[in-house]
Amino acid sequence: MKNAIKIIASLFLLFVFTASVVNAQKWQAPVLSKKKQNPYEASTRNISSGKKIYNINCKSCHGDATMGNMLPLQPVAPSDLGSQAFLIQTDGEIYYKVNKGNGAMPTFEKTLSDEDKWMVITYLRSFDQNKKESKKIVEVKNPEVTDVKLLLDINNENKRILANLTGVTAKGDRVALQGIELSVKVKRNFGYLDISGDDAYTNEKGEVNVQFPEDLPGDREGHVNLLVKVTDDAYYGEVIVDRIASLGIPTNPVNPLDERAMWGTRANAPIWIIFSYVGGVICIWGVIFLVLFQLIQLPKLAKNKE
């Protein structure tokens, strides 16, 4: 009996010991870094921009927040960043870890701006049940649906874009999907411009109404490439529509390569530079050839004198 207690006691000690060793190897942020606070407020806008940054930079490994679909990396798998177990950490700790990286977790010190990092943290914090200021963005429960459709209705007159998100329930009814965030984007020269605005969540009719900016230039006819999608592919897979709409201001784009300029092709070099180059070459080489010409007359001069 005594022996059994001893064995149990030592096993227990061993367990505590190993647990503490394992724990000590866990990734810890330094104490000082914990105090750092998020300077940005938890507004819907910040949360949604954080979500977009998250989807681009973190989702590939960490999966969808709260859904536990992380990439099973070895030896340490990434955590579910929406889980309560993770969110007990302070903003400062998370910020530190995102900055530094560890093992398979890359450093984002240079690749993300401070603002972007705080936006992601704001977004993650919105899943924290213990934070009073946290706002649940997806409160409405939509029914299980199939055949999700996104329809666009574009009003050229007052430049409004109305998007409508619906799906077919198990009973076969097409119903509006509510509280889903949409991204409305316009294609520009380098990537897409997000014009979704502050609050691009579908209302009870499944609609999002977005004002197209007054001053955005389009092509010669004012055409722009619109792209509307459900921001988060996790809900219904990729739901996306693109459309060419004449909402932009018609512009007459000049091809900078058409004019004579320093950056132009050789044929479009500025006249003065062609002149200086050709002129310089002709002058200098003219003199050189003149000298060469005089040089071959040197032997003749010897005869002349005698």
Partner: peptide, 10 residues
């Protein structure tokens, strides 16, 4: 040497 013989002309 271009046939040089140091004449004043050359």
């Amino acid at each position: 040497s271009f046939g040089y013989i140091n004449t004043p002309g050359q």
